[in-house]
């Protein structure tokens, strides 16, 4: 069975015996996953492609609900409630649990409007408040200096790395408690990647972070906890420095030493 470490911090999320089945599949893609997500820290999910790490991540903000027929089983406990409950308010859930995608997803609007988008959805109309919060989010996402003179410009004019930081700014502007990163650097060059990684480690002071990555070095650099997944199962969750040095499971060891993957 899987080796799951204890977390010393408070828990942001608790995943319990979670199973997920896609509408088109007979067999569950995720099997009996149980793990805590520590508050104000970075949890990385690694594993070979197709292991289910992105599927797990997208379950946490119920992204799978956009496509009908997908099935959740088990529990994901957040703020004392099971968010897999069909009655869960998905709008509220997604405001509190933000997400960053594999590719930068700048909306077809200005830089300002991109970052203000989530705020406007929440009904904030006060222009000064919006401006202040946009500036704060852009500063926190380390892109304020680059864009402050062209806030009215189309966001698609930014470079890939800038766009991804803009998306992070957009996500943190609504002050979520948890941020989900789905391979956020897979479409970026090495320098932009480094910038995003630094940002991730800085952001954990304010939010709890789950990051999916196909890059083990990245997991080692940014995370406090690392979960290794294989064929839809969580094989091991450990403190990052321990998991990469003294893995408890043989499969984990084979994966991190490059025997497969």
């Amino acid at each position: 069975m899987a080796t799951i470490c204890k977390v010393s911090e408070e828990k942001a999320l608790e995943i319990k015996k979670f199973q997920f089945t896609y509408a088109s599949a007979d067999e569950p893609s995720l099997k009996e996953i149980s793990m805590p997500i520590a508050k104000n820290s970075v949890t990385a999910l690694i594993g070979p492609s197709g292991c289910g790490k992105s599927t797990l991540l997208r379950s946490i903000n119920r992204m799978h609900d956009l496509y009908p027929g997908n099935k959740y089983e088990g529990e994901i406990i957040y703020n004392g409630r099971n968010i897999l409950n069909p009655k869960e308010d998905l709008i509220d859930l997604r405001i509190n649990i933000g997400m960053i995608f594999q590719k930068p997803t700048a909306f077809p609007m200005s830089i300002m409007d991109n970052v203000a988008y989530g705020l406007k959805l929440q009904g904030i109309k006060n222009k000064t408040e919006i401006k202040d919060r946009v500036e704060k989010a852009l500063t926190d996402a380390a892109i304020w200096k680059e864009v402050k003179d062209r806030l009215k410009h189309d966001a698609n004019g930014l470079s890939g790395g800038q766009q991804q930081r803009l998306c992070i700014a957009r996500a943190i502007a609504v002050e979520p408690e948890i941020l989900l990163f789905d391979e956020p650097t897979s479409a970026l060059d090495p320098i932009s990647t480094q910038g995003i990684e630094e940002l991730v480690t800085e952001l954990k002071e304010k939010v709890s972070i789950v990051i999916v990555t196909h890059n083990m070095q990245q997991a080692a650099r940014v995370s406090d906890y690392t979960g290794f997944m294989y064929l839809g199962e969580l094989i091991e969750l450990g403190k990052t420095e321990e998991l990469f040095v003294t893995p408890a499971e043989k499969l984990t060891e084979e994966y991190i030493t490059g025997k497969f993957g």
Binding site: L66, I91, M99, F101, Q102, K103, T105, F107, V174
Partner: peptide, 13 residues
Amino acid sequence: PDILKESAYALGG
């Protein structure tokens, strides 16, 4: 692109 729509849903749209 789906990913663009998903980003907006992810903000609570």
